[in-house]
Amino acid sequence: MSRAMLLFLCLLGVTGVVGQQRVIYITKYLTWRDAQTYCRLYHLDLVTITTAAENNQIDQDTWLGMYRDDSYSDWKWSRGDEPHTFANEWNSDDPDVGEDCVYKRSTDGGAWKSSTCGSVRMFFCLDDSLFVVKQMKTWEEALVHCRSLRSGTRRYDLASLLTPQDHDLLKSQSLEQVWTGLRFLGDRWVWVGGEDVQYNDITPCPEEKRCGVVDKTTSKLYNIIDCKETNYFFCYRKSF
């Protein structure tokens, strides 16, 4: 989606898309912390930027989800405190000491600016019900991460894939292998979100490989691997 189209959608007060992320433009002027609270209460979190293409699609003076605990800490994203790994898009004289939150400027080529977190700005909220977390974790670590994203009455878990559309969506990502919520526990396969497992050809009694992934290297809807391997992972918002 072009920046012009994203701006048009936002001005209409409806949802836009940044990269593969569903976002909502909020025209309230809030501090960074209040914006974070608002997004976590009504949506998912403040927007995360992971690619140059996503960065180019936001062309307004808005808070980003990036912050640090103090001037000597590493920068991270609000959603799950994911480390900031995307190549910096800083303005030439930023970041500054004592400014621990970040916003995107529409001038200066859309550079990132550090700011005191008490300043007020408009902002974008993430509103995805299914999203990839680009941190390498074991299956257990991924499960803990997804469940830690709980906000208000919203609950999150490792993703359950229940329809062909779910599988197609996840396989369309430019990632070879990603954790899902599929796990062998006790004497059966389960989705950790509580839904029934629909695969008829799955190994009934695995010895070592007991965790499920979406795997672009196979034609199957799923693959099973050792839970101690590390991968990116999919979280989803539970509907109950």
Score class of each variant (00 low, 15 high):
Asn55Ala: 14
Gly13Arg: 06
Ser71Val: 07
Ser92Cys: 07
Lys113Pro: 01
Cys146Met: 07
Pro164Cys: 02
Thr138Tyr: 02
Asp45Leu: 00
Val102Leu: 05
Gly16Thr: 14
Ala4Tyr: 11
Pro83Ser: 12
Asn91Cys: 15
Met1Ser: 12
Leu170Ser: 05
Asp201Trp: 09
Ser2Phe: 02
Lys228Met: 13
Leu64Gln: 03
Ala35Cys: 04
Gln173Lys: 11
Val197Asn: 07
Lys134Ser: 11
Ser119Arg: 14
Asp127Glu: 10
Phe8Glu: 15
Trp139Met: 03
Gln36Tyr: 10
Lys209Ser: 14
Ala4Val: 15
Val23Ala: 05
Arg3Pro: 14
Phe86Gly: 02
Cys125Ile: 07
Val18Arg: 04
Glu208Trp: 09
Cys235Tyr: 04
Gly194Ala: 06
Leu158His: 06
Arg188Val: 03
Gln36Leu: 13
Lys238Arg: 13
Leu162Glu: 15
Phe123Val: 07
Ala53Arg: 10
Leu6Val: 15
Leu44Asp: 00
Thr180Cys: 07
Ala52His: 08
Gly110Met: 07
Gln20Asp: 13
Ala142Gln: 00
Leu170Met: 13
Asp96Arg: 13
Ser106Pro: 02
Arg22Asp: 14
Gln165Gly: 03
Gln57Ala: 13
Gln135Ile: 15
Asp70Ile: 10
Gly186Thr: 08
Arg22Glu: 15
Thr180Pro: 01
Gly212Pro: 03
Ser129Ile: 08
Phe124Ile: 07
Thr37Cys: 04
Asn88Trp: 10
Leu46Phe: 05
Asp81Gln: 10
Trp179His: 00
Cys10Thr: 10
Leu221Gly: 14
Lys171Phe: 05
Cys39Pro: 02
Gly181His: 05
Gln165Glu: 13
Phe123Asn: 03
Glu195Phe: 08
Lys113Trp: 14
Ile224Lys: 01
Val192Leu: 12
Val192Asn: 09
Glu208Met: 09
Leu41Trp: 05
Arg183Asp: 02
Asp74Ala: 11
Thr31Cys: 03
Lys238Trp: 09
Asp157Met: 12
Phe240Gly: 15
Leu44His: 06
Asp74Ile: 10
Trp179Arg: 04
Trp75Leu: 06
Leu12Arg: 14
Ile224Arg: 02
Ser92Glu: 15
Asp215Tyr: 09
Leu126Val: 11
